[in-house]
Design a protein around this nucleic acid. Structure first.
Length: 299
DNA sequence: CTCCTTCCCTGGGAGC
DNA sequence: TGCTCCCAGGGAAGGA
């Protein structure tokens, strides 16, 4: 499912195909637009040029030019778990039937190509923000935490955001206000690489553990981007190509299999809580004792 | 403010 | 073959 590396890969694959093109027409097939009626949306988007694409956490933004006296606008996608953004050149073959059936929006471009947004689970929403109407942007985007691959994301920044929270570190990593872009797969993978049990209270981490986690986040996300993302179920990039990082996962989806750390033969376990599962190695990621897992009285 | 629960939705796989 | 059951899970909302 699209987390930071997957959305980054989609963004990079779409950028050369979309930037500079103009949107000739808009087909709203299902009204999954958060803040416009289908008619208003089509009217406000058609005729604009696509000036840039950018990723913010798991959000993908299309920067659109001004049109007919209206201010520039941002088209904001959140693909959730099963969303796809697929660019199809003119004459491209048909989409897989199940994808075609769940296509919600299509933008027709001036070279007769098409950008299709499909979401097999109907969880995703699109927002249109015209001008600087920031309150129209999704709440999650407005409250987004620091980008984990940016230069100013230091171990100290991570520490400040973890040490004020008593919840399990896995749950805190998934909080997009703490760090942007990490989802279930990369939370499990970074905690394994850092040797931290997912159930440890965030505020109980030592400074060495925070440094190890910070390094693991940077390394795991960078490597996943280099592999063009993780395809475990349905993820494909903007050209329809699957990723390659699924072959390098060390714990996610590997419950019952041997830990891959050299010399460790322990069996990967799966912990379920509130409908969400965590995968970890009980030997590389020891559960804290009561003392180790304790936090200061005042945070 | 944090933390916890519930809900949203459909495809795909397991089991019978 | 066809049915039921269960699982995947990010974010919004609401209550403690």
């Amino acid at each position: 499912m699209p987390e930071l590396p997957e959305v980054e890969t989609i963004c990079r694959s779409l950028r050369p195909r979309l930037v500079g093109r103009s949107i000739v027409s808009v087909r709203v097939i299902r009204p999954f637009i958060a803040n416009r009626s289908p008619e208003e949306f089509a009217r406000e988007v058609a005729g604009r040029n696509i000036e840039d694409l950018s990723r913010h956490g798991k959000y993908l933004l299309l920067r659109l030019s001004r049109a007919r006296g209206s201010a520039p606008a941002d088209l904001i996608f959140h693909l959730m778990m099963a969303g796809r953004l697929i660019h199809r050149p003119p004459g491209a073959g048909p989409l897989p039937e199940v994808v075609a059936r769940h296509t919600h929006l299509a933008l027709i471009l001036d070279d007769q190509s098409e950008l299709a947004w499909a979401d097999l689970r109907h969880f995703g929403r699109v927002h249109l923000v015209v001008g600087d109407a920031r309150d129209e942007a999704p709440r999650g985007l407005r409250n987004l935490g620091p980008e984990p691959l940016a230069g100013d994301f230091t171990p100290a920044v991570l520490a400040a955001r973890l040490l004020s929270r008593r919840a399990p570190v896995k749950q805190v990593l998934l909080d997009q206000r703490v760090v942007a872009g990490i989802g279930n797969i990369y939370a499990d993978e970074t905690l394994h690489r850092a040797g931290i049990h997912p159930g440890r209270r965030a505020c109980s981490l030592t400074s060495d553990e925070v440094v190890a986690l910070h390094a693991a986040i940077g390394q795991t996300l960078s490597e996943a981007i280099a592999c063009r993302g993780t395809t475990v179920r349905s993820y494909v990039d903007g050209a329809g190509l699957p990723g390659g990082f699924q072959d390098r996962l060390r714990v996610y989806g590997r419950a019952g299999e041997a830990c891959l750390r050299p010399g460790c033969k322990a069996v990967v376990e799966r912990l379920r809580k509130g409908g969400r599962s965590s995968h970890f190695c009980p030997r590389c990621q020891r559960e804290g004792t009561d003392v180790r897992n304790s936090c200061p009285d005042r945070l």
